[in-house]
Design a protein around this nucleic acid. Structure first.
Length: 803
DNA sequence: TCGTCCGAGACCGGA
DNA sequence: TCTCGGACGA
């Protein structure tokens, strides 16, 4: 039933239209969907129907007439989530979703900055730097100012700049405590000047600049505050300080130290799934939100519709080890289901082989289709072994992550040319392609070009005319090529522009002559198709109607375009608009924006029934019937970089929690005793997370090793770990079922015995303390005076007996 | 100036 | 194992 008091006045269609929307919601979900106006926090556990609640809420607001499409702003973190929301919405309601602002933080900021680029102090065609571009911009800066790159590593500088921006700090705002910081802040200032001069913004700038735009321009801010009466924020636990401040600005103004809001904000989040602290996410925003917005309604969604209880209990038990939690426990009405299966492999190869065997059984036995099986891992590097194991037995698979479409070198090159067409002063793009394909412009020429540009204070493009000699001729030819191309492609469609660019730049020619160029040529072809489908989706062409603007120069709330009720209209948002002129951004400029904000899929063959391989981070928000989580070893998962502090470890645990809760019916966990990482074999302890799972939910496919500590690379580390959280490990003999593991017998074919002195190429001389295993599996424990005690796989380690 | 070779260092995660 | 940057010879 609809709460009567929340239906606001005139224009409300009969509630009969909304009723089907609400069908099948549980009481908490219903309460969340039909919340009356006002701010609210929804704590939504994994698999509790969060996205459904969000989209139904929007649909409910619209269908009851409480909101117009233009009055809604819904913000997410990933393009995937935004698309999902739009897809579901359009399935629920026969309305055009174009007038709504649904997108990622960065996407919406981009939209704001395009609309008000003058006020924001940006050229209309400003380009967006992705992480790669940003790094090369920083490197260029370092070269220019002769920065000691040993002392200030470009990567660290980029990270520092991004961190400042996430905190909302401009160079003048950064507290300087030491000389080191002072230098960094100076470089930060120079970096900003460089970006501004070149008309480019990085991801952090996108966010910070639009924050400042809203903060410093009252009419604009007020306009959007009025417009967005309903704001919904997904994955609120992942917001950083700046994003939260941005939301506050849109919601209302501070009056006498108190936030006076106009519309209502609904934040949906799960503190247990906060896995982005490394890029500035602040779980504390949830508490701040409750306090500063005066949130009175908090709803917990704890009913899980996804997993059986063995899986859910495991997740609950694991996450209970974290100290800082808002407190929430998932429950399910489904039965216990299958136990969580645990497997210990001798090596990463064996682990992968076991996974593949299990996967084939699942598929052949009809338990699951391939696309409903996911293999999750902590870091991308782990996918290799699994991929090759799958490949060997011809099981189709799909890897997420790694290089994505718009990040491939050839695509970046092509995009750089396109960017130069839009903005000749984009020095990052200039540098990228000025000598690619090679056209006789070497480091020397570029150095002098950069010198000249700095002296005059202009872009590289403009500095070219001041260079004389042979270098000047070559550079001149390059610039002329770009300028001619720009003129020639004026007014042409995107397909034609890209086609001509590929020819004129010599990219096609270059890759045609390259040995391994076929793939790259194919990708360049794919770029044209991508542009083509972008153009149709975004609705450029006949139905592209500019949004009208009001007296403040901002687009009007309700545009005729957004009301053009075309049920078959594409799902994406309306074209980017310049608020001053009402012009839509050119297809090329919009496409470049799209390419920067959405790195795209990494592989085609989407439709195929394939096993899904991805990192745990990438799996967030997804679910599968069967989930394998591999590499559950100390230093890998939890990752070694995260173990230095408590916060890091808790984040790793949340990551594990996310991984576990992806599974609906079957969950497999595994770890390997030895793993080839960074080109060398490592011996890792079984992950501590195993000890935090309830024994009764687990089924050990291999005997649970008591002597786990024997794999420690360093005895001191073992001591520290043993004295820590590790309690009594339950050794359940009845859990030993299939498949049987060959017993390890002493079979000293290697000629070693305890007490023998041996020599290792890396660790030097040492003494054998213990031996175990046989054949390929044989290991020796050796004490090296300088490197401590290690277990070495004799098949791998080169040990010679010292006479 | 260009291409290739080689050694060092990295690989945790993403808009 | 792979990528990057520097060195070196053509």
């Amino acid at each position: 039933m609809l709460p009567q008091d929340s239906l606001s006045g005139a224009g409300v269609p009969p509630s009969g239209q909304a009723a089907p929307l609400l069908h099948g919601l549980n009481p908490e979900q219903l309460a969340a969907v039909t919340l009356p106006a006002g701010h609210a926090l929804i704590l939504a556990g994994a698999g509790s129907g969060k996205t459904r609640v969000l989209t139904t809420r929007i649909a409910w607001l619209l269908s009851t007439g409480q909101a117009a499409p233009g009055g809604i702003l819904a913000v997410t973190f990933t393009n995937k989530a935004a698309k999902e929301m739009l897809t579901r919405l359009s399935a629920m309601l026969p309305i055009n979703v174009r007038g709504m602002w649904i997108g990622t933080f960065h996407g919406l900021c981009n939209r704001l900055l395009r609309a008000h680029h003058k006020l924001a102090g940006l050229p209309q065609t400003f380009q967006i730097l992705d992480t790669q571009d940003q790094l090369s911009a920083v490197k260029r800066l370092c070269k220019q100012f002769n920065v000691d790159e040993e002392r200030f590593k470009p990567k660290e500088l980029a990270y520092f700049f991004a961190g400042c921006k996430e905190e909302g700090l401009r160079p003048r705002d950064v507290p300087v405590r030491d000389e080191d910081t002072r230098n960094k802040v100076e470089l930060y200032q120079l970096y900003e000047e460089q970006c501004q001069r070149e008309g480019v913004v990085d991801f952090g700038e996108l966010m910070l600049r639009s924050y400042e735009l809203l903060r410093d321009n009252d009419p604009v801010r007020v306009h959007y505050q009025r417009r967005f009466a309903h704001m919904l924020v997904d994955e609120f636990q992942d917001t950083n300080k700046l994003q939260y401040a941005w939301l506050k600005l849109l919601a209302g103004d501070m009056v006498d130290g108190r936030l006076q809001t106009r519309g209502s904000v609904i934040a949906v989040g799960d503190d247990d799934q906060s896995i982005y602290a490394f890029r500035g996410a602040r779980v504390g925003n949830m508490q701040d939100f409750v306090r500063e917005f005066g949130v009175e309604r908090q709803i917990k969604l704890e009913q899980n519709y996804r997993s059986y209880s063995n899986i859910l209990d495991s997740a609950n038990a694991l996450i209970a080890h974290n100290s800082k939690r808002l407190g929430k426990n998932l429950r399910t009405s489904q039965g216990p289901g299958e136990p969580v299966r645990v497997y210990e492999a001798n090596s990463d190869l064996a682990e992968a082989q076991w996974m593949v065997d299990e996967i084939r059984q699942l598929v052949q036995g009809g338990t699951a289709t391939r696309s409903e099986i996911a293999v999750l891992y902590r870091s991308n590097a782990q996918s290799r072994v699994i991929e090759s194991a799958l490949f060997n037995v011809a099981v189709p698979y799909r890897v997420y992550g790694g290089l994505r479409f718009f990040e491939r070198a050839e695509i970046k090159h092509a995009l750089a040319y396109l960017r130069l067409l839009e903005n000749p002063h984009d020095d990052t793009s200039f540098m990228r392609v000025v000598n690619f394909p090679a056209r006789g412009i070497g480091a020397r020429s570029l150095e002098s070009l950069q010198d000249v540009a700095r002296q005059i204070g202009c872009s590289l493009h403009d500095a070219v005319s001041s260079i004389s000699g042979k270098a000047g001729a070559n550079l001149g030819a390059f610039v002329a090529m770009i300028d001619v191309l720009r003129e020639q492609t004026q007014g042409q469609n995107l397909r034609a522009i890209i086609g001509q660019m590929l020819q004129a730049s010599g990219l096609i020619e270059h890759y045609r002559n390259e040995k391994e160029g076929a793939d790259r040529l194919e990708n360049l072809d794919e770029l044209i198709s991508a542009a083509e489908s972008f153009v149709t989706q975004e609705g450029f062409g006949k139905d592209a109607v500019a949004l009208p603007i009001d007296e403040t120069g901002a687009p009007l709330t309700q545009s005729p375009a957004s009301q053009g009720l075309d049920p078959n209209a594409p799902l994406l948002n309306q074209p980017l608009v310049d608020a001053d002129t009402g012009e839509t951004l050119s297809p090329l400029a919009a496409f470049l924006t799209h390419a920067a904000l959405e790195a795209g899929d990494n592989q085609a063959q989407a439709g195929q029934d394939a096993v899904q391989l991805m990192t745990v981070h990438a799996s967030k928000g997804l679910e599968f019937d069967c989930v394998f989580i591999g590499g559950l070893e100390e230093e890998l998962f939890p990752h070694q970089n995260a173990m230095s502090d408590q916060g890091g470890l808790e984040e790793e645990r949340r990551l594990m929690y996310v991984a576990i809760t992806r599974a609906r019916a079957r969950l497999y966990l595994s770890h390997a005793q030895t793993r080839l990482l960074h080109g060398q074999t490592r011996y890792n302890l079984r992950s501590r997370f195993f000890d935090e799972l309830p024994e009764e939910c687990l089924k050990w496919l291999t005997p649970r090793q008591q002597g786990f500590a024997s794999y420690a690379p360093d005895m001191r580390a073992v001591g520290a770990y043993q004295s820590g959280a590790r309690g009594q490990s339950g050794f359940k003999s009845e859990a030993f079922t299939s498949p049987p593991v060959p017993p390890r017998k002493e079979a000293p074919a290697h000629g070693l015995r305890v007490g023998l002195a041996v020599f290792h190429t890396k660790f030097g001389e040492g003494k054998v303390l213990a031996l175990e295993g046989a054949g390929d599996d044989a290991r020796a424990q050796v004490n090296f005076p300088r490197h401590g005690t290690k277990w070495l796989a004799l098949a791998v380690a080169k040990l010679t007996i010292v006479e």
